[in-house]
Nucleic acid binder design. Structure first.
Lengths: 155, 155
DNA sequence: TCTACTAAGTTCAAAAAATCAACTCAGTAA
DNA sequence: TTACTGAGTTGATTTTTTGAACTTAGTAGA
């Protein structure tokens, strides 16, 4: 929980938040609708209470989940995802697909909700919605990200 | 390297292979063309030699990378990805995109290689190539995976 | 030839993180 | 009153990771 990658790379920085043991699985359990401490704990065979408590605290600090007090006095929380946590759906799906294609032991495949037909990942141009060909990561220039964020907020 | 998730979930099983500290970053360095031990080590500031050596060994056992001896006597290897390792590209891209949208510190965006326009992740139907709407994970029935694998091999 | 230096590790001690078991605290059920 | 549950906390033990030193074969330079 303290050792972080100090590398100028989105992947490393993302893993600093979601790369600790159990973390992504915890988020995934909340994603599929388990919101109580005990629900999450029971779903994740082998996790210990203290670790789950630590991770939930950290994820809330980082803004991936939020907790809603539904009983004070024994303080009880319901955990749900923020937009930032929900956005990990593509990461889950990428892992599910990779697992389906490359693991011996695999349990799920990914299908279109309407037709039930198997899908794979593709990339689409944000502006036009057209299908992209090859995609590549390129550096974000200094300040460009801040600008984009302002535009998104409609400022 | 020994503690594994024992859960019936593609994500957990995938993380059993690529979820250890440094592992995904190592694969990513090989993915972007660093093939020598020292190249990988230098790119990943903070990793120790023994850990890198352990991870490379494990990833080769698991079939995500292969090593080619280019000098015996001081035995020297060049590491490259197998098809299984290459297939992690979508996972890398999902993380890059999530990082771009949700981290304060972010270094890369993902663009179409031809037009340079920003892209996002979508899903398309394997059979027809059409864009899918909502996608959901569904269980793979007992034996179905084995069948699919046989079909893929053209048997 | 001798010395310095490099690549690709290995070995081992120390530090950090995760697991495990027991405990707390408030409330509920019998 | 006793037992039990949910949501944790505390502390000891075990496992992983880090960090530093060492090895081994080879290369470059003087």
């Amino acid at each position: 929980m303290k050792a972080r990658y100090n590398l100028p790379c989105n992947i490393a920085q993302s893993l600093n938040i979601i790369g600790d043991r159990w973390t992504l699985l915890i988020i995934h359990e909340i994603f599929v609708g388990r919101t109580l401490f005990s629900e999450i704990k029971n779903a994740l065979t082998g996790i210990s209470s203290n670790l789950l408590a630590d991770r939930l605290k950290y994820l809330e600090e980082e803004g991936l989940i939020k907790s809603e007090l539904y009983s004070r006095h024994p303080p009880r929380y319901r955990y749900t995802l923020t937009e930032s946590g929900e956005a990990l759906e593509h990461v889950f799906n990428a892992l599910i697909l990779w697992g389906h294609d490359h693991l011996k032991k695999c349990y799920k495949k990914l299908v279109d909700a309407e037709t039930g037909k198997e899908v794979e990942i593709g990339y689409y141009i944000k502006e036009t919605g057209e299908r992209a060909g090859k995609v590549v990561p390129v550096p974000v220039e200094e300040g460009e990200k801040a600008l984009e964020d302002r535009v998104k907020e409609g400022q």
